[in-house]
Design a protein around this nucleic acid. Sequence first.
DNA 1: AGCTAAAAGTGACCTAAATCACTTTTCAAA
DNA 2: TTTGAAAAGTGATTTAGGTCACTTTTAGCT
Lengths: 190, 190
Amino acid sequence: MQTKYNLLRQHFEELFALTDDEWNFVQSHFQYKSLKKHQFLIQAGQAVDFEYWIIKGLVKAYSIDDKGKEHILQFAMEKYWVSDHCAFQHQEPGTIFVDCLEDSEFFCLSLENREKICLEVPAVANFFRIKSNYGYINLQQRILSLLTMTAESRYEYLLNKLPKLIQRVPKKLIASYLGVSRETLSRFNS
Amino acid sequence: MQTKYNLLRQHFEELFALTDDEWNFVQSHFQYKSLKKHQFLIQAGQAVDFEYWIIKGLVKAYSIDDKGKEHILQFAMEKYWVSDHCAFQHQEPGTIFVDCLEDSEFFCLSLENREKICLEVPAVANFFRIKSNYGYINLQQRILSLLTMTAESRYEYLLNKLPKLIQRVPKKLIASYLGVSRETLSRFNS
DNA sequence: AGCTAAAAGTGACCTAAATCACTTTTCAAA
DNA sequence: TTTGAAAAGTGATTTAGGTCACTTTTAGCT
């Protein structure tokens, strides 16, 4: 288990160094969780008590529309953070589902604990500040890709950007992420 | 001018309180800028030296595709932050344009100064952390709206969410923001 | 290894929205 | 207050991508 915590420490320290004391304090605010493939991390309608850092595995975050169709908001794997951020931040019932595409392990951080470690350890506040900023930048680019590119070029773009992901995820889910039907994606390209 | 700085201080203090000393330090890292309608704040291809807080006015942030068509990434008005965040963060040439839809005034923050005040004043780091997080949440919702909703319901949704904005912005720009053609938008609704 | 279910591919057809071309309305600057 | 330009509306036509129905392939399970 300590090895797993060390992975998280390394993740924090990619951006800002922490003293051992700081790290021990921070670490004590996370809890471990493990799920099998097909199990839910978050379900719409329920409370979202945590933000999750993925130690190992792969999940999809998605919403389900009135016709029962699923729309993928995010794939998240090792070293990614995932949650229903909106529900988590506002401590409201969630609107999206997150489930495991592979057996997965997580470190869980509650809102209360997040605020506590951010206020206590400025390096952690700065860590989340920069991480959120990168996340924001990524979403802006995804929005631009939805506004400016055809479905086919979004697919090519994703193939280049995250080739490893494509191999771990069924194409029908890639289609859902890109906002295209499975059949249309199947008719693309190479 | 001090009145304008006070607006910015209030904006920071909506999330975390600052001492007068802290504020004086923070304030000294911003510079004032004013532009007339139709002037550019940021242009694709050029360095992006600042992030901007809007004191007064309204701008659009957009990219131009290979066919010369403009796609609106964001509208930003009083109390909003705007920049080419990607280019700014990586200190690379920009890829988007930001120009003024009305005469506008800004406070400008360089990357170096942002990092300086965040490291010096933890409340500022926490401020930007929370702001970025809210921004992230908003973009996730916009992505979901692009994936799950028809153009018409996205329009209705926007009418409810930001009625004031609609009145300040030509409909053809709203169309571009929603990812619909001007003509199609014009055929909608009520 | 054999079997079931999920995933992927494919043809035929349909539709939301884009595009093009033109008219009408609104607005801002002289 | 006129006037020229930008914005908005509208009809006709096209098109990217969706939907439906079915077949083939792949991947987990016992």
